[in-house]
């Protein structure tokens, strides 16, 4: 089981966390076209490599946080931006 580093709690078993998904920015709901909104809802970059994503430390401090993870080998580095930042 891989370790994931929570900014509050440090390295913990990944089973303590819930995967939220790729970090995405929410389009302005007033002006978004259907296509823009559905890209936000349904589409993913899904790269084989580094990705910015959001995790939730549900069995710990309950913080949502951003992290960069390599989807090929699960290596991690802390996210440049904050949680929810645009990918």
């Amino acid at each position: 089981m891989m370790l994931l580093t929570c900014p509050n709690c440090g390295a913990r078993n990944v089973s303590e966390f819930r995967y939220v998904g790729e970090a995405k920015s929410r389009p302005d709901p007033e002006t978004a076209t259907p296509e823009q909104w559905r890209r936000y809802l349904y589409f993913h970059r899904n790269p084989a490599g580094w990705i910015s994503e959001t995790w939730y430390h549900g069995s710990g401090c309950r913080r949502y946080f951003g992290i960069e993870r390599n989807t090929v080998d699960n290596a991690q580095r802390s996210a440049a931006g904050t949680a929810g930042a645009t990918s």
Partner: peptide, 11 residues
Amino acid sequence: WEWAENWLQTE
């Protein structure tokens, strides 16, 4: 609860 926290913490 998690949904509400997500809005609060990230947006």
